[in-house]
Amino acid sequence: MIQRQLAQLTATVLTNAHFKGFLTGKIYDGPLKRVCVPTLNCYSCPGALFSCPVGAAQVIFSGGGGLDPTAIHTYQDKLWNVMTGTPLFVIGTLFFIGALIGRAACGWACPFGFLQDLIHKLPTPKFRAPKAMRLLKYAFLIGMVVSMPLLVTDSFGFGEPTYCKYVCPAGTLEGGIPLPLLNPDLRAILGKLFAWKVFVLISFLTAMVFIPRPFCSWACPIGAFLAPFNRASFLRIELDAEKCVHCGACSRVCVTGLDVETEIDGLDCVRCLECAKPCPKHLIEFSGFASSSRLPAGAITGSHPNLHGL
């Protein structure tokens, strides 16, 4: 599906369009960094124009004093402390995107999702991981993005971006590797933590070869946050179950390894619509925003028989 890959490539380039950074090793420091993209793209990448919601949320949660009870005197103080200690802008951005398109950004615009799709195309045997592993991403979201930055603090009340520091392979790939390559000072301070992060990155890169989108399925906090929105967003994917011939062609191409017949548009669906392409009956399609505005799947994939020649 060239259209989707083009969208992924465009999104990857646009979110990392500070090309000068890749030559100088200096990250972009302009006003666009106030804005979070609804995808995983480390803001310490030399090319990043925008902020990553995972990193930004941890900055606010770990900011210190936000929920400190000793700083609370009046009702207004309490309200202000809760408000400034909660990443409302980040959560609101994800609510906004989630309400509109659910996890479609994961399937169409995430640079790290794009990388996983590309690596998975390598011609090797493919496997499906146990479904239970998909629950891990919720543990990462609640434990390492929210709880630990908020609750594990130093003597000044500041936490640390636990998920970014110990897990996020996108941060290692996009910032942790290129920045030391471009800055000798950073190379000089690489240590055990960096070795651990490289190990995590290599583990995920290896898994991507054999398993469809392992990071999205097991460890992405943005995916975990946006997952419930697939049940409530304007955009939907519909499968005409009555006409389905149960051939399984859709499940064989699912980029997240789902059983499409039962899990389409569910919590782990990234709405890439790859499943629509091999469907012999053209039963899978985008819908939503208004019932009269249903888009035949082929309108996106270019495979719909009624759209040939357009």
Binding site: I27, K33, A56
Partner: peptide, 15 residues
């Protein structure tokens, strides 16, 4: 967010 994101976050990238 701007203040944090415009500096290289050494923790964020595992350094």
């Amino acid at each position: 967010i701007l203040e944090k994101a415009t500096q290289v976050c050494l923790q964020c990238i595992g350094i």
